[in-house]
Design a protein around this nucleic acid. Structure first.
Lengths: 131, 131
DNA sequence: CTTGACCTTCCACCAGCTGGAACCCTTATG
DNA sequence: CATAAGGGTTCCAGCTGGTGGAAGGTCAAG
C-alpha cells in the first residue's frame, strides 16, 4: 500500500502519517522509487493511534499503548492505568469547562446586547475581584 | 510600576506580560535604564486579558474584546456576539469530551485490570469498526 | 565592593500537526 | 515522444499560547 491508500483506510491525513513515522510509531519499508510501502500491521497501528487520539490520549499515551498493544504478554492493569489517568484528565477538563461555561453564560444573559455601550461583560472582565 | 509589580498585581507571569507586549496588547513606556514602565491602564488591560483567557477566550478574542473595552462608544451587542460564540465553542468542547468520556469509561469498566494479557481496551482500539 | 534580586534580549522548545515549495515517479492521452 | 494529471518525496515554516534558559545590564543593601 502507498501512503494514499493507508490514509484513506485509516482515516488519517497523509501528512499525519508521515509525522507518525517521524516520531517512530511506524517504520514502513521503502520501495525502489522511494515510496513508503505499508504493511497491514502499519495500517492497524495507525488506525489504533487514530482511535486513541480521538479518545483524547496524548501522543506519549499512544506510544505507551502501542507498546502494550504489541506486547502479547502485557498485563491489562498497565493499559487500564493509562486509560484511567486519561479519564481523570478528561473529567478535570470537563469540570473546568463547565465552570467557565457557567460564568460566561451568566455574563451573556446579563448583557442587553443592544446598540448601547453599557456592557456587563466588559464591566465584569475589567472590574471583578481577583477570585 | 516595573514588570514584577504588574506581574504580582495582575496574576500573570512576567514572561507572559512580555509576550502580551510582543503581540501588541500593551505598549508600556521605557525608563532610562530600559525597564518597562507600566501605567495603571496597562495593569487594567492585563488583568482584563487574564480574566478573559481564564474564561476560554482566545488571544484573538481578547484583541477584539480589548478594542471594544477601549472604545467607550461600542455597542454591547458586539461584545455579546463574541461571548456567545465563545460559549458555543465551550459547549462543543464539553460535548466532545463527554462523548470521549463515555466511550473511555465504558472501556475502563470492562477491563479486568489484572496481570493477564487479555484487555478489552486494546482489543477495541485495535479492532472496532471505523465509526 | 560584592551579593542578590531585579530587569533586559534572544533563542529554542512544548503538542500535534498543517501548509507550501520544489522536486521525482507513473500512467494516460494527443 | 511530449506533456499533463495525479500520485509520491523532502524540508522548512507556522499555528496557539506561552515557557525555560542563557547571557548580560541595573540597583539597593550590607
Amino acid at each position: 500500500m502507498n501512503i494514499g491508500d493507508v490514509a484513506e483506510r485509516s482515516g488519517l491525513p497523509a501528512k499525519t502519517i508521515r509525522y507518525y513515522e517521524d516520531i517512530g510509531f511506524i517504520r514502513p519499508a521503502r520501495s525502489a522509487n522511494g515510496y513508503r510501502q505499508f504493511a497491514q500491521k502499519d495500517l492497524h497501528k495507525l488506525t489504533f493511534v487514530g482511535r486513541a487520539r480521538s479518545l483524547g490520549f496524548t501522543i506519549e499515551d499512544c506510544r505507551t499503548l502501542l507498546a502494550l498493544y504489541e506486547d502479547r504478554g502485557r498485563a491489562s492493569a498497565d493499559v487500564k492505568r493509562v486509560a484511567q489517568q486519561n479519564l481523570a484528565d478528561i473529567d478535570t477538563k470537563i469540570a473546568d469547562l463547565q465552570e467557565m461555561r457557567a460564568t460566561l453564560s451568566h455574563l451573556v444573559t446579563s448583557c442587553a446586547g443592544d446598540d448601547r455601550p453599557d456592557c456587563p461583560i466588559l464591566d465584569t472582565l475589567g472590574g471583578m475581584p481577583k477570585a
